[in-house]
Nucleic acid binder design. Sequence first.
DNA 1: CGTCCACAGGAATCCCTGGGTT
DNA 2: AACCCAGGGATTCCTGTGGACG
Length: 452
Amino acid sequence: MPKYIKRTVSTGTVGAIMNDQKSLDSLFDKLLTNEQIFTNKEVLRHSYTPDELPHRQNQVETLASVLVSVFRGETPSNLFVYGKTGTGKTAVVKHVGKALVRKIGGNFFAKPFHSTRTVPDFVSTITTHKCPVWFIYMNCEVVDTQYRLLAKLGEYFGQTIPLTGWPTDKVYDTFFSTLDMEERLVIIVLDEIDRLLRKGSDEVLYNLTRINSDLSNAKVSVIGITNDLNFIEFLDPRVRSSLGEEEIVFPPYDAIQIQDILSQRAKMSCRSLDVIDAGVIPLCSAFAAQEHGDARRALDLFRVAGELAERERSKRIVERHVREAKERIEQDRIVEVVKTLPTQSKLILYSCILLEKYEPSGISTGEVYNVYRDLCKLSASEVLTQRRISDIISELDMLGIVNARVVSKGRYGRTKEIHMGVPVTQVKRVLEQDRKIERVTTYVPPIQHRLS
DNA sequence: CGTCCACAGGAATCCCTGGGTT
DNA sequence: AACCCAGGGATTCCTGTGGACG
């Protein structure tokens, strides 16, 4: 826990107890009259889409020029959108989608309407146009398998499909037939589309991109969004060519651009601009620019810095708050990730931590496995195979908790060389809160000699 | 220069859960 | 009750391999 909280709590408590009635009253007064820094924190959240998107005019116009064919009654080309996280991809697509729907009178969906409800009355508003337009936004991080995606899509068209149980082709057929019941144009946005591929559910992409040739009434066009630039490489060539009819690239923001974005939001969220010290916004922006131009990071930094300032009852946000916020965000992330790890992963991670003391030059998979087995016995856990442990270590690596790279020690074989990627003492403390780990805290790994 | 270690990591299969249909 | 299906975690079996040692 950061120092400043301790300080505030201890002096506050002691003061309240020790001082007389008058200062107790004034303590409350101070709390009540304390002017907050934020008046509207919502605009700093990731989910908030502003009306203006600074430095994304190009992308907005390109996207609009692809979708404009809707007005001519044509099906827009399939589209592929890529750029790193926090570069405004989702915001731009949603923004243009809303504008399109408003103009043409269709329907914008970010979640399905309940199936018992009747279909919204957009059909009547649309009769002047060639056909109704449905704009459906879907995040594949949540719906990440073929089954779930099709089921969710079916839901948009009023079908009730169970979360599990049906064979996939039946789900597809149901979705297909309801979709084709009437003339309409459906624009499906698949955000984080790379998730589907990672889970091996890319068959659904193939089906979706060639669905038009089987449909007789409805038309579908797909917008795929990804932040994984290698994603395209691994895609089925047929899907790649079909999905990539058009492409829009979102380059990372530079520090100056992030400053613009952050200033815009800061203005909306704060009581007044006076509460922000001059260096704060540039510093947030600089930090965010370092992280591949992630605008969200800047917003997070600013929000947390503001919260820290409020907690301190400081009148203004200063640079120190930003630095503390940076620390804080990272710490919270780690604690959250470690705490929610499955027990087996925790045991593996704990093994790594125990070994690190003795092998500062890097730990091998075999060493981890030996310690892990001991820990399993002590904590009465099931022992998994080394194959699985190898995968779990890789998962921990991807989460950034450890760094594991494959090295060859020549005569002594190939293995992963594992280093801790985060502060050890804190992670250890979090792990030891787990009931299984609690039982093995006294374990000391046998000292292993090895040739070097 | 060939060997051979200590694993990496792919593929197929199994097991289990949560749900369906007949 | 008997049987089918998807999906996630785990196991089994497997082939592949960088480079220090001899």
